[in-house]
């Protein structure tokens, strides 16, 4: 059974804008899916629906065979906490909190006892190579480092799916490479299912499969024939 089932989904905003129309696909556990399209194509809206951050107007979306209504509001919050990790283009770190505090944030909403928070957060921080930065605040970090903190935050609860919304959009190409390397590593070695939203073909080609979105509809869904591998030698 597929991890994610999207059936004939549409999304209209109250002002009448049609962001999605008749979108259907399935994603299995362990896939690395690039969702690609120009700005305004509806790819971000699609991500919101997939992450249960927003409800679709029509069609059905099932995550692990359950819909938004099946989970209920608190169930959704718990799902986002335990099964999903989000990485945003703007990093969205808490400005006045240290790297450690930022990474601990999802743990504070979990059922994990607080005595384990530090160990878990440190492991996640080490996995993105920022152990030497734990006590720094985001303003003291470079863009690439901020995004690695965001990845550590997304990882800390060991989620099944990671949603990355233009994760390299605000980074120079070298920093972007390291982010892509980490994502590929998480997918290959740790088995996380990854959704990568981007408007660049180059970035999208780091995924195994690309779903192309245009004008709210799916314009193509294919495996990547020549997959790119990020080799920044960031992960030894």
């Amino acid at each position: 059974m597929a991890l994610i089932e999207v059936k004939n989904i549409s999304k209209e905003y109250p002002d009448g804008t049609r962001a999605l129309h008749g979108v259907s696909f399935e994603v299995e556990k362990g896939e690395f899916v690039g969702i690609m399209g120009p700005s305004g194509s509806g790819k971000s809206t699609l991500l919101h629906v997939l992450g249960f951050l927003d409800a679709q107007s029509g069609g059905t979306y099932k995550f692990q065979r359950k819909t938004f209504d099946d989970y209920g509001p608190d169930g959704i919050a718990r799902l986002r906490n335990e099964k999903m990790g989000f990485i945003f283009q703007m990093f969205n770190l808490l400005a006045r909190a240290s790297v450690l505090e930022n990474v601990k944030l999802p743990l504070s909403y979990s059922t994990i006892p607080s005595s384990e928070w530090n160990d878990r957060a440190m492991k996640a921080i080490e996995s993105v190579g920022l152990a030497h930065r734990v006590d720094h605040e985001p303003s003291e970090l470079s863009g690439g480092e901020k995004q690695r903190v965001a990845i550590a935050r997304a990882l800390v609860n060991n989620p099944q799916v990671i949603f990355a919304d233009e994760p390299t959009g605000n980074l120079d190409s070298k920093s972007g490479q390291s982010i892509m390397e980490i994502l590929q590593h998480l997918n290959e070695e740790k088995g996380h299912t990854i959704f990568l939203i981007t408007h660049e073909t180059y970035t999208a080609e780091h995924a195994k499969r690309i779903i192309r979105v245009r004008d709210g509809e799916i314009a193509g869904d294919s495996l990547v024939s020549k997959r790119r591998w990020a080799r920044d030698h960031f992960i030894k």
């Binding site: 951050l53 608190d74 718990r78 906490n81 989000f86 969205n92 944030l105 999802p106």
Partner: peptide, 11 residues
């Protein structure tokens, strides 16, 4: 952000 990482409304 807090909601995205799992905060409920009551949190």
């Amino acid at each position: 952000l807090r909601k995205a990482v799992g905060a409920t409304d009551s949190d």
